[in-house]
Computed example of a mutant assay.
Amino acid sequence: MFLFFQSPMTKTKKLIGDEGIIFRNMFATSPLCCPSRSSILTGNYVHNHGAVNNSVDGNCSSPIWQKQSETRAFITYLKKQKYTTFFAGKYLNQYGKLETGGPEHIPPGWDWWNQ
């Protein structure tokens, strides 16, 4: 039996990769969504930002995370340098729940927020 394997995302590769760069390896600080996104937002490893799993109890968008790490996310530094900022897409897993401030909570530093 012959198995044919086609490279995924061929259109994306043609439109972006062939015109720029292709990353052949990818590394993440954590295999879990919220801790990894928290690392991207803060530039810190999990043991420094404290989001250890995808639950509020695990510090995913918890009031403690919002008060400590969220106020020091990279976007707050860009905002201080007068950048206009925009966010669209998934933020953190527990974002928008009543116990984390509901969808009314917009993290500091964002001019345009589309969650």
Rank of each mutant, 00 (worst) to 15 (best):
M1N: 10
F2S: 08
L3T: 01
L3C: 08
F4N: 10
F4M: 10
Q6K: 12
S7L: 11
S7D: 04
M9N: 05
T10I: 04
T10F: 05
D18G: 02
D18T: 01
G20I: 07
G20V: 12
F23I: 06
F23E: 09
F23N: 07
F23A: 13
R24C: 08
M26C: 07
T29Y: 14
S30P: 04
P31A: 09
P35H: 15
P35W: 14
S36L: 08
S38G: 08
S39L: 02
S39Q: 06
T42F: 07
G43R: 02
N44K: 14
V46P: 14
V46Y: 08
V46M: 12
H47N: 09
H49N: 03
A51R: 06
V52M: 12
N53K: 07
N53I: 01
N54A: 00
N54L: 00
S55I: 00
S55T: 01
D57C: 09
G58Y: 09
C60R: 07
S62Q: 11
I64N: 10
K67F: 09
K67P: 05
K67G: 05
Q68P: 02
Q68W: 02
S69G: 13
S69T: 11
S69E: 15
S69A: 15
E70W: 02
T71S: 12
A73I: 04
F74G: 13
I75P: 01
L78M: 10
L78W: 02
K79E: 02
K79R: 07
Q81C: 10
Y83D: 00
Y83S: 12
T84H: 07
T85G: 13
T85C: 11
T85F: 13
F87W: 14
A88L: 12
A88D: 13
G89L: 06
Y95D: 12
K97H: 05
E99Y: 03
T100H: 06
T100A: 12
G101H: 04
G101R: 04
G101Y: 05
E104K: 09
P107L: 02
P107T: 10
P108R: 07
P108H: 00
P108W: 00
G109Y: 03
G109I: 00
W110N: 01
W110Y: 10
W112G: 10
W113N: 01
W113R: 01
